[in-house]
Design a protein around this nucleic acid. Structure first.
Lengths: 143, 143
DNA sequence: TTCCTTGCAAACGATTTGCATTGGA
DNA sequence: TCCAATGCAAATCGTTTGCAAGGAA
C-alpha cells in the first residue's frame, strides 16, 4: 500500500497538491508487481484519467522524486515508486513477452553489488551513483 | 574495426545481403564508444543514408542478431554490436547529458556478477539469461 | 481570488510502412 | 531475370503542449 504521508509531504514541499488522480496513480503502482507504462496504467485504472492527464501526473510525480522512470522494451517508459519508498530492487525482464517484475535484493547481495560497481566504474574515473540491473530470461508464464 | 566475415556469414545465412549501407552502419558502430541512436548515426554518417532506410537497416541487423538495441533516456533506442562480436561489457550513463559509454568487465568481475545473478534470479524461479547493468553517474565532461 | 489541475484537441518527435524504383547475384 | 534493398512521402505511436474550464486553499 502507498505510504501516503511521506509522499504528500514531498509533494507539498514542492508546491504541488496530492490530488485524487495522483493518489490513484501511486496506489496503482504500489499495487503492481513491477514498473508500469502510461498505457498499462490507463487500462488498469479503467480509463478513469485521460491519457494526457495521466502523462502529466507521471511527469509531476517523477519531478518531485516519488516515481522513477525505466525505459524498457519497445522504448516504452514505465514508472515505479522511487526506491526511498519501495526499497532497492532489480528487474527480471522476460525476453518472450517483455513483462517486467521486481526482485528484492538481500543486504548481502547488495553489498556484493556495491563492490562490483566500484570495481567496474572506478577504472574509468566515473563516479558511480545509482545503478540498474536487468536480468533477462523467461518468466514463469512463458517458460 | 568491424569483423566483416562473421557478420556477412550471419546475414547471408539469414537470406539477406550485406550491402554497402549495412556495412557502413556496422563500421560506424564499431567505431563508436557506446550505443548510438538512429539520429546519432544519421549525423555521424553525414546523412548519407536516408533516415527511413537507416531505420530499416538497423531493424534487419537486429533481426539477424548482429546488433543489440538499448532503450535509454527520453525513450531513444540505441544500437551496438551484439556481444558475440564485441565482447561483454556494461554501460555508464551520464545523468546529466544522457550520453552512454561502454565499460569492459574483467573476467574476475564477470565471475562475481554471474554469482550475483544466480543469487538474485534464483530465488524467484527465474532462469537467468543475459543481463544488462547500467551505472549512473556524471561523465568526465559533465563533472 | 489566486494558483494549481484537468480535459480536450492539436502538435511533436521517433519510428514504421506503402509503393514505385533500383541494384545485385 | 528476380527478389532483396532503397528512397520518398505518408502514416503511426507514444508523448507533450496550448488553452480554456474546474477546484482547492
Amino acid at each position: 500500500m502507498a505510504p501516503d504521508l511521506p509522499i504528500e509531504e514531498r509533494l507539498v514541499a514542492s508546491g504541488v497538491r496530492y490530488t485524487k488522480a495522483r493518489r490513484a496513480v501511486m496506489a496503482e503502482l504500489f499495487r503492481s508487481a513491477g514498473p508500469r507504462s502510461a498505457a498499462e496504467l490507463y487500462q488498469a485504472m479503467r480509463r478513469s484519467i485521460p491519457l494526457s492527464s495521466l502523462y502529466r501526473t507521471l511527469m509531476v510525480l517523477e519531478r518531485v522524486g516519488v516515481l522513477t522512470p525505466h525505459h524498457g522494451s519497445r522504448g516504452l517508459t514505465r514508472y515505479e515508486p522511487a526506491e526511498w519508498l519501495s526499497g532497492h530492487h532489480h528487474h527480471l525482464v522476460c525476453v518472450e513477452c517483455g513483462s517486467v517484475e521486481d526482485v528484492a535484493v538481500s543486504p548481502a547481495d547488495e553489498r556484493r553489488m556495491r563492490g562490483l560497481l566500484g570495481s567496474i566504474a572506478g577504472r574509468v574515473g566515473f563516479e558511480p551513483g545509482g545503478h540498474t540491473l536487468e536480468v533477462e530470461g523467461r518468466c514463469v508464464r512463458c517458460s
